[in-house]
Design a protein around this nucleic acid. Structure first.
Lengths: 267, 267
DNA sequence: AAACACGTTCGGTATTACCGAACAGTGTTC
DNA sequence: GAACACTGTTCGGTAATACCGAACGTGTTT
């Protein structure tokens, strides 16, 4: 008897498509060397032959590619195109990129821009630092608001009641010993953030890593998103935080200006 | 009696998944404002209710999002994440990015890197010019080799027989009046390219646009890909082409060094 | 209020997605 | 060198379901 454990309701969905997208998710979460059909089958709740048919279909469309013989399934080129289009379809992406480039040059760090997705920051654009240091900073995923500088920068500009509601949804799990875990601490931090003009994540999300973030706006109400810059925690950085903060703030302000200022001058 | 006119074979594929991916393709090709269900139904070879079920499934997984009421379907956030992971899973992407950043700063133009996908260039990484000029340069799509500087740069480094085979596949359609359309012209151009060290696309792909490209290598055999830089054709640019060419060449050489030189020094 | 658009819901049926088992390669072990 | 263990691939058969067409709401236009 087959059942769909991930499907509570009985609404209008196509099961096999769900399976296919689950399969892609498994490949995403898997090692970059890819997954074999056998490994995929173990992860899927389907038979080997069905998994095979799904994989073949996805390969046909370029969503996956089977490298080597026997094939190991990795993400395909078509997804690069889709992701590029998807992020371009968010108008913010194009607006942010040049600002981020400048910010990365100024600070020498990796900088990113997130949009406000119902209180959660979702990073949509990233410019790596000119230096050799790289961070694992995936795009397109919802981050936890209370341990990221972008999240806190946005929260600081929202009414207290809204903040309470947002963190109630996600909880306040500690990602490191330095994470903020109570609403009281958070409010205090947000107060400081508001006065200071930018948010600081001091090893609250990853040990050894700090972030500085500032929100930007579109219509004056809730923040439209935030920019942030990320670096490794070092003694020398501590003294520069004020300088970095001002750069980040300036970048956020520039984006706000671009968003609110000239609304469609060209067409 | 229903039949699938686009389906000749009877191989192991999942039809509804194909339909779903086709639906995504239509959204990609559609306007950035999105498509309504009715518009999608017109494009798909399915009934309205079936298209509806597919769209809902894709929205559930974040591949699409329905904005507004009535909903217009646009590409979803999940694709940003997938695309980011997909391009990161190509080791070249990370290697190329810092080189491209430097190249863009040097030249003041948009620069890109393509991998060699069976003779076709597929651009996987892009760094926009610091200036205000933007080009429509989508990532992840197979470009035509004979009208792009990246393509010609790669072809120039392949044996003549291989070149003949590749252009036989794609044909030599003219994209502009200045496009190369015969194999003889192409060979001559490739000879010059080889001697010069970099390829030039002088309004052969788009009028008013020039590109300069150079190939990079991994194992000494066929080129692994190419970098290129793109600008608008102007008088002053003509004199600088040699300077730009050398920058592009240097960037390609740097990538070659990174690829062939230190193979896994760290782990 | 009638007409039209749109998205959504509903039964019913024929299609097909799915399974389990058999087949075919490849490298390893006895 | 045969048996094994492990891949990915192919094959019928059946129960599930993807699909269709029509009906239903809801909002906008005549």
């Amino acid at each position: 008897m087959t059942k769909k454990p991930t499907d509570g309701g009985r609404s209008y969905r196509v099961g096999s498509v769900s399976h296919a997208l689950d399969l892609i998710d498994h490949v995403v979460s898997g090692p970059s060397s890819g997954l074999s059909l056998a490994e995929l089958t173990a992860l899927m709740e389907l038979s080997k032959s069905s998994t095979y048919a799904l994989a073949r279909t996805l390969v046909d469309h370029g969503y996956l590619r089977g490298v080597g013989q026997p094939p190991r399934y990795q993400l395909g080129m078509a997804l690069v195109r889709l992701g590029d289009r998807a992020s371009s379809s968010i108008p913010l992406t194009d607006i942010c990129r040049p600002v981020l480039v400048k910010l990365s040059q100024e600070t020498g760090l990796t900088s990113r821009a997130a949009i406000n997705d119902n209180g959660y920051p979702v990073f949509i654009s990233r410019v790596d630092s000119p230096g050799p240091i790289r961070f694992y900073t995936p795009l397109g995923v919802r981050e936890v608001p209370h341990t990221s500088s972008a999240g806190k920068a946005m929260l600081a500009m929202m009414p207290a009641e809204r903040v309470r509601q947002i963190v109630a949804e996600t909880g306040m799990a500690a990602r490191t010993p330095k994470s903020i875990t109570t609403i009281a601490e958070l409010s205090a931090d947000l107060d400081i953030t508001r006065k200071r003009g930018f948010a600081i994540d001091d090893e609250e999300d990853d040990l050894g890593v700090f972030c500085i973030g500032a929100a930007f706006f579109r219509h004056g109400s809730e923040p439209a998103g935030a920019v942030s810059t990320t670096g490794i925690k070092q003694d020398r950085a501590a003294r520069q935080i004020d300088v970095l903060g001002r750069s980040v703030q300036a970048a956020a302000d520039e984006i706000t200006q671009l968003l609110t200022g000239l609304e469609r001058t060209d067409f």
